[in-house]
Amino acid sequence: MDSLVVLVLCLSCLLLLSLWRQSSGRGKLPPGPTPLPVIGNILQIGIKDISKSLTNLSKVYGPVFTLYFGLKPIVVLHGYEAVKEALIDLGEEFSGRGIFPLAERANRGFGIVFSNGKKWKEIRRFSLMTLRNFGMGKRSIEDRVQEEARCLVEELRKTKASPCDPTFILGCAPCNVICSIIFHKRFDYKDQQFLNLMEKLNENIKILSSPWIQICNNFSPIIDYFPGTHNKLLKNVAFMKSYILEKVKEHQESMDMNNPQDFIDCFLMKMEKEKHNQPSEFTIESLENTAVDLFGAGTETTSTTLRYALLLLLKHPEVTAKVQEEIERVIGRNRSPCMQDRSHMPYTDAVVHEVQRYIDLLPTSLPHAVTCDIKFRNYLIPKGTTILISLTSVLHDNKEFPNPEMFDPHHFLDEGGNFKKSKYFMPFSAGKRICVGEALAGMELFLFLTSILQNFNLKSLVDPKNLDTTPVVNGFASVPPFYQLCFIPV
C-alpha cells in the first residue's frame, strides 16, 4: 500500500510540474494548442506526416506557434517570411542545433551535424575549407563525379535492359564520391566492405524516417530501456565508426604531411598542428563522427533524390523527352556531361530543381535551437528552445509555385524558357546551418541524371499514369515507394 501511495504522489508531482512548466512558459512563447500533461501535443500531431499537421496548425495559430513534445516546448516556423527572418536575418541567433537524443547517444555531441557552439563552428569551418581545397564546386571533385558517372552508366548497362530496382546502384554512385573525398578511394560496386557500408546507410535513412524515431526523440528514456529499431540505428553508426577508425589508422601509418590526399589526411594534419593548443576540438573521436556525418549527409540524401527523380521522369515521359532533346543538342553522344553545360541547359536545370522542390526530401529539416534569449515577432523565446522549420511550407508555397503539388519544371523557367532562380528554393535548409555539401549534391544530381539520360531511355513496367509517387515514409525524410524500371541503351 505504501508503495502505491508513493507512486501516486510521484505521478501527481510530475503532472503538477508539467502543468507549471507549460503555464509559466506560455506567456512568453508564441500561441499554440493546449498541451496535455506529460505528453504535450503529441496526440494532435500525425507522426506519419508531421508536415501536414504543421500546415493545419498554422492555419489556426499563424506562421509562428508553439507545440509541446512531452514536456519540451518547440517553436514552429511556417512559411517563407518566418523562416527567412529566423535563419537568414537572425542567422546567428537561430544557428543552434536542437535536442536530438538519439544523435546524442550516437555521437556524444561530436561531428558537424549535431554539434553546437565553438566545437560546431570550428569543425564546420575546417570541413568547408577542406572540401573547397579539394575542389568542391571546382574541377578536381567534378572529375571524381564524372568518373563515377561513367562507372554508374557501365553498371546500368550490365542490367541488359531487364527490369531492376535502382535503389542499390543509385546509392553506390554518391557513396563512392564521398569515399573518394574521405578515403581517396572508390570501391567496386561488388566489394563486400562497400556493400556493408551501403547497407547500413540505407537502413539508417529508413529507420530515421519512421514514426518510432519521432517518439524516441521526444521521450528519450525509451532509447535506453525499450527495444526497437533505434538500437539497430545505433549499432549501424557504431559499425561505421569502427570502419572509419580502421581507415584512420591506415592513414596514420602512411600519411605524407607534405601531400595530403583526402579529408582524413587533412584532419590528422590539423590534429598535429593543434596538439599544443589544448583542449582542441580536433580529436580522433571528432574525426570519426565528422566522417560519419559526411557519409550520412552525402550519400543517402543524394541517392534518395536520384531514385525519386527517375520515378518522376517515368511518370512524366514528356519531361524526359525534353531533357534528352536538350542533352542531344548541347552535349551530344561523344563526350561526358560537365558542369559548364548546365548554363546552356535551362530546361534540365529546371527539372533538377523541380525534383528537389517537389519531393521535399527533408520536410522539417533537422531541429534548430536559439543560442540566446531572443525577441522574435513580439515573442520571447528562451535560450536553448528547439525550433522546428517547415521546409515544406517554403518549397510548396502556392504563391511562389502555382499548383505546388504538381510536378512542373516551369516553376523554374521564365516566359522565355530561361532558368529562373527562386529564393524559396531551400531543399538544403538556409542560413548558417545550410548543408555543407550543397554544391557537391547539386553537381552530382546534374551529372548523374544527364549521364543516365544521355545513355538510356527509361521504360516503366506499368502505365506511367498508374505510377504512385507518394512517399512511403514522410517523417525525417521523404522516401519514394518501391518501383522497377528498364534502362534501355540509346
Rank of each mutant, 00 (worst) to 15 (best):
I207H: 06
S460N: 03
N418L: 08
K235L: 05
N277S: 12
A86L: 05
Q44R: 09
V5M: 14
L366R: 00
E285C: 05
D463T: 06
N398G: 13
I169A: 03
D349L: 15
T299H: 06
Y68G: 03
C164D: 00
R124M: 05
C372T: 15
V462C: 11
E85S: 08
L156V: 03
M339G: 05
Q193H: 09
D408Q: 04
E300M: 15
P30K: 00
H411C: 02
R108D: 14
E288T: 15
H368A: 04
T302L: 07
T159E: 03
H344L: 12
L7S: 11
K399G: 12
F448G: 00
T283C: 12
S3C: 13
L208T: 10
L54P: 03
N236G: 03
R377D: 08
K138E: 12
D188A: 07
Q22A: 13
I374D: 01
M271E: 07
P63R: 05
A350I: 02
S460Y: 01
E328F: 14
V248E: 03
F263A: 05
I387L: 09
C151S: 07
E253R: 13
F456R: 00
I223T: 14
L17N: 12
Q324F: 03
Q22W: 14
F183Q: 04
S162Y: 09
F407E: 00
F376I: 11
E415M: 08
N133T: 10
S393L: 00
P33H: 02
I213A: 15
T229R: 14
A369N: 15
L313C: 09
E92S: 12
M129A: 13
C179R: 00
E93L: 06
K160C: 10
P404I: 03
K160L: 06
T469F: 05
I374S: 06
M339A: 05
I244N: 02
W120A: 14
L445N: 12
E405Y: 11
S209V: 07
A309N: 02
T385M: 05
Q278G: 14
K121M: 09
F168T: 08
I169L: 15
V145A: 01
N398R: 12
E438S: 15
N334Y: 12
I488M: 12
E328G: 14
P337H: 01
T386H: 08
F376Q: 01
N56A: 13
D191F: 00
Y358M: 11
V75H: 00
F65H: 04
A441T: 05
H344G: 12
L201G: 04
F448N: 00
F401H: 05
P367V: 13
Q146E: 10
D373G: 04
E92G: 13
D341S: 04
G62F: 01
D165I: 00
A350D: 02
N116F: 04
P227N: 10
P31N: 08
F476I: 15
V177K: 00
I331D: 01
F69M: 12
P346H: 09
S478K: 13
T469I: 14
C338V: 09
F425P: 02
L152K: 01
L311Y: 04
F412N: 01
P260R: 09
K241E: 05
I488C: 12
G40R: 02
K315G: 03
K200S: 07
K383G: 05
R21V: 13
L128P: 04
A161F: 02
V352L: 15
L43N: 09
T305M: 05
F487H: 00
F134M: 14
L195Q: 11
F126Y: 07
G437R: 01
P481T: 02
A161T: 07
R108I: 07
C372F: 07
M129C: 12
Q278A: 11
E203H: 05
L362G: 03
D188F: 02
A161K: 07
A350L: 01
R108K: 11
F65M: 08
N418H: 12
V490A: 12
K118T: 13
S127G: 08
C486I: 07
K459F: 05
L208C: 09
P382L: 01
S140P: 06
N133H: 08
S23L: 12
T450A: 13
I141K: 00
P404R: 06
T386P: 09
H368G: 03
R108T: 13
Q22F: 14
H344I: 12
P481H: 05
P227L: 10
E285A: 07
L54T: 07
L361H: 08
K232M: 06
S429N: 06
T469W: 04
F419I: 08
I112L: 15
S422I: 06
F94V: 11
L366T: 12
F401I: 05
R144H: 07
G62A: 02
A477C: 07
G62I: 01
Y225G: 07
P33D: 02
E154C: 05
E250T: 06
V355R: 00
K48N: 12
K273M: 12
Q324G: 06
E253S: 12
I434T: 15
T386D: 11
E300F: 15
D293R: 00
K119E: 15
L234E: 11
M426C: 10
R150G: 09
I99H: 15
S24N: 13
Y483T: 01
F401M: 05
P367T: 15
A161W: 02
C10G: 13
L447S: 04
K232C: 05
V76K: 00
F425G: 07
A103I: 15
A350T: 01
N202R: 12
D89P: 09
E400M: 09
K420Y: 08
V323C: 13
K273Q: 14
G109K: 08
K420S: 07
R125M: 06
K235A: 11
S422A: 08
R342E: 05
I182T: 01
T348Y: 02
N289C: 11
Q193F: 09
F126Q: 08
L366Q: 11
K270Q: 15
L388H: 06
V76S: 03
S429T: 06
E318V: 08
E142A: 05
C216N: 09
G27C: 12
V237Y: 07
S336K: 06
R125K: 15
K206V: 05
T470W: 04
N218L: 15
F487L: 03
L449P: 00
E104F: 15
P402W: 06
L445G: 05
L197N: 00
F183M: 07
I141V: 09
E122G: 11
I331N: 02
L11M: 14
T304V: 11
E354L: 01
H410C: 12
D408A: 03
T385H: 04
C266N: 12
I331P: 03
P279N: 15
L311T: 01
A321I: 11
N466C: 12
F94W: 06
K84T: 09
N236V: 00
S53P: 08
E415P: 09
R144V: 14
T55S: 12
I264H: 01
N455Y: 04
L17M: 14
F110Y: 15
R125I: 04
H344Y: 09
R186F: 03
F482W: 09
V5G: 14
F100C: 15
F134D: 07
S393R: 04
P409I: 04
I88S: 13
A430M: 11
F456T: 01
L54N: 04
I327H: 02
P317E: 09
K28I: 12
K375D: 05
D463E: 10
S336C: 13
L366P: 09
N378E: 12
L362C: 04
S336Y: 15
K190P: 02
D49G: 12
G111Y: 01
S343T: 14
I39A: 10
L391P: 02
K72V: 04
D408C: 05
R377A: 07
V323W: 00
R21D: 10
L440P: 03
P363M: 04
E326A: 01
Y379A: 05
R21S: 13
V352P: 00
K421V: 09
L87D: 03
F446V: 01
E325P: 03
K160S: 09
A430N: 13
D224Q: 15
C266V: 09
N474Y: 07
P163C: 05
L208E: 15
M136C: 12
Q22I: 13
S53V: 10
R333V: 07
L362P: 00
K28M: 12
E400V: 11
P227G: 09
S51I: 08
N236T: 03
F456S: 00
